[in-house]
């Protein structure tokens, strides 16, 4: 059984079909890429998969369950986590608290036990702290634990966003342009981190990226989106040599 399956997925804004007949399938622990020209509907696909937008047609099955009637919160709890193109951290909260928000459901001490300071409160907080720190360590962020997230440099903010997403213990991680605004060295570093994350947490990753070196370097398979539909799907080499893809990116020369 596949982890994620989208069938005939589509959404319309007014008369505009932003995504149309989107078919896609992913299995556990795979690393796929989603590319396409600007405005092709890549982020819209992420928004559909995470429940931010409700599709006007089609079906999404995740882990055997339909996501259509679920709220973004439920979908996240079911195991899809994501990052955002325009980093959306809780800027005024500390780095570690950002991760702890993601860890919210890892503990279940009640409001009453925190008011009465019962042992379950301390135990829960302690456990959360440990888990958050070990996640920060993966991304070399542990020494910034008490810094306000908004004060981190750009590249580290991107990493923190991935850490926060991982804190929700997802089965599938969606990364929306993780290398945007990074220099080549940072991008290189990021590629390593993504590989480590996939190994360490044994999760599936789907990423949107414009940096072709990154996409071609780490993705097993790539889907190319154009005008809201899947134009091509295959290994990096197949995509590189696909005439349709070249035409979509560079324009048709007739």
């Amino acid at each position: 059984m596949s982890l994620l399956k989208a069938e005939g997925l589509g959404i319309q804004f007014g008369g505009l079909k932003a995504v149309d007949e989107f078919n896609f399938e992913m299995n556990q622990n795979q690393l796929y890429g989603l590319i396409g020209p600007n405005g092709a509907g890549k982020t819209t696909v992420f928004n559909l998969l995470t429940g931010v937008y409700k599709p006007t047609s089609g079906q999404i099955i995740f882990n055997g369950k339909s996501l259509l009637k679920m709220t973004p919160t439920q979908i996240t709890q079911l195991g899809i986590a994501r990052t955002f193109q325009n980093i959306r951290l809780f800027k005024k909260m500390s780095v570690i608290d950002n991760v702890k928000v993601g860890l919210h459901h890892s503990q279940n001490y009640s409001l009453l036990s925190s008011i009465l300071h019962l042992p379950s409160y301390f135990k829960g907080e302690e456990a959360m702290h440990e888990m958050a720190m070990s996640l920060l360590r993966v991304f070399d962020l542990e020494k910034y634990a008490d810094v306000k997230a908004g004060n981190l440099p750009y590249g580290k903010q991107r990493k923190l966003e991935i850490a926060r997403a991982l804190a929700t213990s997802p089965k599938l991680l969606l990364l929306d342009e993780p290398a945007a605004g990074m220099n080549p060295i940072e991008t290189e570093e990021l590629m390593e981190t993504i590989k480590i994350v996939r190994e360490k947490f044994s999760i599936a990753i789907l990423l949107i990226e414009h940096d072709m070196k990154l996409v071609m370097g780490i993705c097993e398979k790539i889907a190319v989106l154009n005008f809201g539909t899947v134009l091509a799907f295959g290994t990096p080499d197949e995509i590189k040599n696909n005439p349709d893809v070249i035409a979509a990116y560079l324009g048709n020369e007739e």
Binding site: T73, R88, H104, T168
Partner: peptide, 13 residues
């Protein structure tokens, strides 16, 4: 701080 990000971090907002 950010309601959408909170929802997508699994918080029942």
């Amino acid at each position: 701080e950010d309601e959408t990000a909170s929802e997508l971090s699994g918080i029942p907002t």
